[in-house]
Write a protein that binds this DNA or RNA. Structure first.
Length: 367
RNA sequence: GGGUCGGUGCCCGAGUGGUUAAUGGGGGCGGACUGUAAAUCCGCUGGCUCUGCCUACGUUGGUUCAAAUCCAACCCGACCCA
């Protein structure tokens, strides 16, 4: 078997483990940078590896549009295509059901998106699975319906009904044993629907489970609540992936609830917008005048190339003059920062001191 | 010396008699960003004793109830002719 998930240590509900894939092992909990278009924006694979990232996420919908899965397959698959030798995961396009809600129509059989050039793009569970099989990531995701945070109970009921039906179809269509197909629990902010969705998907016996439908506009309190009410239903022996989450507090609290994998665009997007993640959660806009004559490193304790080499004044200059290197250097730092943060949470679990090591993130957490 | 066009807020540049402290850009200052249609998006950007007042569209004077906008002279710039 190409996939294996081994738990090394638990600390309350939190777990430290190793998720093994055909392209390498992922010490968990782990943070996955997002490389939607088969690139973590502004970072070369070598730079990405330098951040300590093990697994990287790419997107089925975007790669289907450009360059098309056939071209990726012709290049020998996604790993070869983007020259990332480590583990890869493709998201199914389910999030685009949410993010492109003005540009798609939804029915029980699937979704029709309108591409930027106007073309209709039809995604069904079978099509999303076929594309992901062709792309060849180690972990692929079921095509799900991701409803917005403000959805009514009835709308979320429909979404979990479709998500379960679609997961069944993805599972039936999926053929490659060297790819693990994960299911995605939906249910919005309604605990009973989260439980129902989890139970239905667990009955289908997937090798891993994701919590989807968070970070869709609901706010930190509800994210915490959704994670708290969903994780107890997920199988202990399988990896759990909280999709789209990447703030320090949410990462720490979710790890404490037993989440193993995370992804988030935040570190790379903030970097491209000129902001650095520092001090365990602060966001600094490096364009601000206060950094113009700041000759200290961004974070003297950070081992990344950016912090080891350059001053804040230089980063400020690059951002102000819109030099592309500025984006790269901030992305390098931000990704390193979040990868290392989750690594430090893992180490705390191994040391059996998760809550005491990071008290600042757990003060508002109910049991 | 003659002629033509032009001089607008930090910069560029609209506006050619009346909701004009004056459209847009840029720059400046700040904010947002959570499975990426995001190197994007959103504010603010003359002064003050601030529900109002003052100062502003080269300068000065004039016409008018009302002028950045019309008239005159002057100053400055670009180009053309001598």
């Amino acid at each position: 078997m190409s996939f294996n998930f081994t738990l090394l240590k638990t600390c309350g509900a939190a777990r430290a483990g190793v998720f093994s894939t055909p392209h390498g092992d992922i010490p968990t909990p782990a943070f996955m940078p997002v490389g939607t278009q088969a690139t973590v924006k502004t970072l070369s694979p070598a730079q990405l590896a330098g951040t300590g990232a093990t697994m990287v996420l790419a997107n089925t919908y975007h790669l289907h549009l450009h360059p098309g899965e056939d071209i990726v397959a012709q290049c020998g698959g996604l790993h070869q295509f983007m020259q990332w030798p480590g583990p890869l995961l493709t998201d199914s396009g389910g999030y685009q059901v949410f993010s492109l809600d003005q540009l798609r129509t939804l029915d029980d059989d699937g979704v029709t998106f309108r591409a930027p050039n106007g073309d209709p793009i039809r995604f069904t569970p079978e099509e999303a699975t076929r594309i992901q099989n062709a792309l060849g990531a180690d972990v692929i995701m079921c095509f799900d319906e991701c409803p917005p945070a403000k959805s009514s109970y009835e709308a979320v009921q429909t979404a979990i009904r479709r998500t379960t039906a679609w997961a069944t179809r993805c599972q039936a269509y999926h053929q490659r044993s060297d790819q693990a197909l994960f299911a995605i629990v939906q249910g919005g902010i309604y605990p009973d629907l989260r439980e129902q969705s989890a139970r239905e998907l667990i009955a289908l016996d997937f090798p891993g489970y994701a919590i989807g439908g968070v970070s869709v506009g609901e706010g930190a309190d509800l994210i915490r609540q959704v994670v708290a009410t969903t994780t107890p239903f997920l199988p202990v022996e399988k990896p759990r992936y909280l999709m789209g989450i990447g703030t320090y507090r949410e990462l720490a609290q979710s790890v404490a609830r037993g989440i193993d994998l995370f992804d988030c665009v935040l570190p790379t997007r903030l970097a491209r917008h000129g902001a650095a993640l520092v001090n365990g959660g602060e966001r600094w806009n490096l364009k601000n005048a206060q950094f113009r004559r700041d000759y200290t490193p961004l974070d003297a304790t950070c081992p990344c190339y950016t912090c080891q080499t350059f001053t804040r004044a230089y980063l400020c200059h690059l951002i102000r003059t819109q030099e592309v290197l500025g984006l790269t250097l901030l992305a390098l730092h931000n990704v390193t920062e979040l990868v290392r943060f989750v690594q430090s949470l893992r180490q705390a679990i191994l040391d059996d001191r998760l809550l005491s090591a990071f008290p600042q993130y757990f003060e508002q957490m109910d049991s």
